[in-house]
Design a protein around this nucleic acid. Structure first.
Lengths: 116, 116
DNA sequence: ATTACATTCAGCCAAACGGTTGACAATAAA
DNA sequence: TTTATTGTCAACCGTTTGGCTGAATGTAAT
């Protein structure tokens, strides 16, 4: 597990930076499932899959429920909320960029109109 | 630069997974600025800062404008939009979890009330 | 022309990453 | 009790990361 806010973001973003792990999250968003089923789509060892899941667990994105020899994984998207909120700050900035772009295009159009 | 959608997400999330780079983004969201100013808050070599900036550039999050010996960096939050959109899918899932939680708590309350 | 400044480059290092293999532990089925 | 099945663990391997240093580049100021 992770302590402070910043390390949490480190862990979450790092976990999301790998396509295999993103695919696992996408699968788990459908429904919880076991390790083998989670591993099935990937051409890699179960050991490698196991490592990926531990990264997801470490970031708090996945919780595991052990029953006998079967481990069931379940998505917990709460930690993602931290990532979304961090990004959301800059979404506004992004919209401003869009506004500036359209404004510039508009100004161009007007300048063009004057020249014609 | 990055080709397809998945690699773009890899690059963006990886870039965001480092606190130094997140701090740089936060600084650049205030206003564009030069390398040295961007480097000032960090106890690390300019060379190390240079590498971080290149990671941000590689993910498309920062664009550089060179004038003489001064490089000005500017935020481009468009690539972040991809990250936000990927995450947004699971935000809904997160809200569902919240709903389930509140429903469970409510049910608990009601059960408690019956017992009293 | 020389000196100072802003920045990158190239090479090095230790640590982390993503994968493999082979051995192991625990549980279920024969 | 033996045998599968499910999954982890430990050790290894090649690559990437994040940092350093020292040299090199290009530009501005003297």
């Amino acid at each position: 597990m992770v302590n402070n806010q910043s390390e949490q973001l480190n862990a979450v973003f790092h976990a999301l930076a790998d396509p295999t792990r993103r695919a696992m999250i996408a699968r788990l968003a459908q429904s919880p499932c076991g390790i083998s089923e989670l591993a099935a789509p990937f051409e890699m060892t179960l050991a490698a899959v196991s490592k990926h899941i531990k990264v997801l667990e470490g970031a708090g994105l996945v919780v595991r429920n052990i029953q006998g020899r079967n481990h069931t994984c379940q998505l917990d998207s709460l930690p993602m909320q931290g990532g979304i909120e961090w990004l959301r700050h800059y979404e506004q900035f992004w919209n401003q960029q869009l506004d500036a772009l359209t404004a510039a295009l508009l100004a161009d159009d007007q300048a063009q109109a004057k020249q014609d």
